[in-house]
Design a protein around this nucleic acid. Structure first.
Lengths: 119, 119
DNA sequence: CTGGATCCGCTTAGATACTG
DNA sequence: CAGTATCTAAGCGGATCCAG
């Protein structure tokens, strides 16, 4: 397979871009993580994601729902409550989240350990 | 560890966000993939990434260099040529890229197979 | 108090063109 | 070939407001 130097590029880039298209932005994965951790309510999710605002969360939630990664269930209680849960499809993202977690953890060590903290 | 329902959230979100901070956006991973495939020159990278523009490529390349993921080497030839290569640190991203590739491939099948094509 | 929508400013991304 | 400049459009983020 690896005969030369300029290997197939598009065949790798395109699926990766399809994936990036879905988890695009700084919020989608954190939201999925928060929900997977048992935070199903809007404010509960909001509180568990540093610096996110209602507006952004609202928008991202809709986006995620359109991608079939989360399910929005409305309960006709008093007052109305809404629960966000992950779909089984979202669970297939676990290897991605795990890889990111591992790399991010290592990266954090690298940047904090070498010269200066970041934020 | 998994005693309850509301599990540690920040401990997962923060490293993931550190990772997302680095590979943020639609271009960084495609660029890394292109370079890893043997495309080292500016125009060569540009041509192998659909829809990227010079400006964005230029900016992303600087970003990636600042994060120590790529190395920019200037050769004093006629005319001056520049080569971008991956650092060993960039290689540690392989599990992430691989996970994204696997998921993206599957996702592509899902969206093309169910109703309508996307891009 | 929950789940948003709206107005507005700032930062980014993208199209096109240009320089060394 | 290897980028920069300029302009515009879109998206992010903050504050505020609204319905139940």
């Amino acid at each position: 397979m690896e005969t030369g130097d300029h290997k197939d590029c598009l065949g790798v880039i395109m699926p990766v871009r399809d994936a990036l298209d879905v988890i695009n932005g700084k919020w989608k994965l954190p939201i999925i993580i928060a929900i997977s951790r048992g935070h199903k309510r809007f404010r509960d999710i909001e509180r568990n994601i540093p610096k996110i605002t209602s507006k952004v969360l609202s928008k991202e939630l809709k986006d995620l729902e359109a991608h079939k990664l989360i399910k929005r269930s409305v309960f006709d209680s008093q007052p109305v409550s809404v629960e966000y849960t992950l779909t089984p499809y979202a669970d297939t993202l676990n290897p991605v989240i795990d890889a990111l977690f591992v790399w991010g953890t290592q990266h954090r060590k690298t940047i904090f350990g070498s010269s200066e903290p970041q934020g």
